[in-house]
Design a protein around this nucleic acid. Structure first.
Lengths: 181, 181
DNA sequence: GGATACATGTAAGATGTTACATGATTGT
DNA sequence: ACAATCATGTAACATCTTACATGTATCC
């Protein structure tokens, strides 16, 4: 049970909501304005083939006169997806980029109990704090050798992390009181 | 003169500062706490080979008893790097992720006049504003179908963009008054 | 003498990008 | 009839990751 890419898990998450075709999935990526995810057939279809090979999804025979095939999650697919969702955020996750973490978080509400979500946010806020401390430390030592724009860009990064930590604490409070956003 | 990857341009930027070896470049990635950039030899050496093939850098013969080879920018390499630096930020850049833009911005202070930097920030702030407007629009339409964590994650993304727009305006002011950060 | 840091590369494998190929259905 | 959208895939290509291979210089 080795892990798949983020794209694989996102597809799993969308198929957890309801069975869909490759085309449906691509359209979601086209129409959603966030997304590092490409709607290109060259990304989506091979990813679906991969998931099928792993036994995480099944494809129906072509339906409806069209060649449309609906993909649906298998039991092991759901298990793999839940295992992915349940991973607590690590320092490495924080360094490698918050985006993946947000994608994971976005799906959590559909499948995990509030306490797990809250724990995720707690850990995330703490991990970000630690990383910010490292970033500040480095800035103190290295600022002298940096250009103006270098320093400003660096500060933008730090500020971005701080924004995320503050968000995590606000989100935690919202989840705790039952979820009025 | 097709374009290279971000890694290529970052290497170019570091070599613009001073000639360095592949090892030197890798160490920079190891020791800097930001970075999506990997210090793995399997990324850096092939990228340097690519830049050499393009005629953007030259490699000295092994020096110093060691096998160390120093890479340095050629005139066309510097031109290609400057062309990359001078690109104004586009809407697509903003959607694909701010990170690349910050990397570019970080190098700008070393090579471009303040007015160009200011123009970059102006355009960036406007492009972000536009994108935020789209994101809000989508949220209004789609919020009903989203889970709590889905909505929260989405809002984190929007907030992140807003933070960046505000940063761009602050950075602009700092550059204009000569660069006290 | 042995560990650690210096130093450069290649090999295998997975993933993603862009472009191509093919054909059915729906709306005008 | 024709265009647009639905629908699924493959092919070529570049890039990155992880792991391997090799050898030198320095410090203790």
């Amino acid at each position: 049970m080795t892990s798949d890419t983020i794209l694989g898990y996102v597809l799993l998450g969308l198929l957890h909501q309801e069975p869909r075709s490759g085309y449906d999935l691509r359209k979601i990526f086209t129409s959603t304005p966030f997304s590092h995810f490409s709607d290109s057939p060259g990304a989506v279809y091979p990813a679906l083939a991969r998931l099928r090979r792993r036994g995480w999804v099944t494809a129906s025979a072509p339906t409806g006169g069209r060649r449309k095939r609906l993909f649906r999650l298998t039991a092991t697919g759901r298990k793999a997806w839940l295992a992915w969702l349940r991973q607590p955020p690590t320092g490495t996750d924080v360094i490698r980029g918050m985006d993946h973490l947000f994608v994971r978080f976005a799906f959590m509400g559909e499948a995990l109990p509030a306490e797990v979500v809250v724990r995720f946010l707690d850990t995330l806020a703490r991990e970000i704090d630690e990383h910010v401390e490292d970033l500040r430390q480095f800035r103190r030592e290295a600022a002298a050798g940096m250009s103006i724009t270098g320093r400003l860009a660096y500060d933008a990064g730090v500020e971005s992390y701080e924004t995320h930590a503050a968000w995590a604490r606000r989100a935690r409070a919202i989840i705790m009181q039952g979820g009025e956003s």
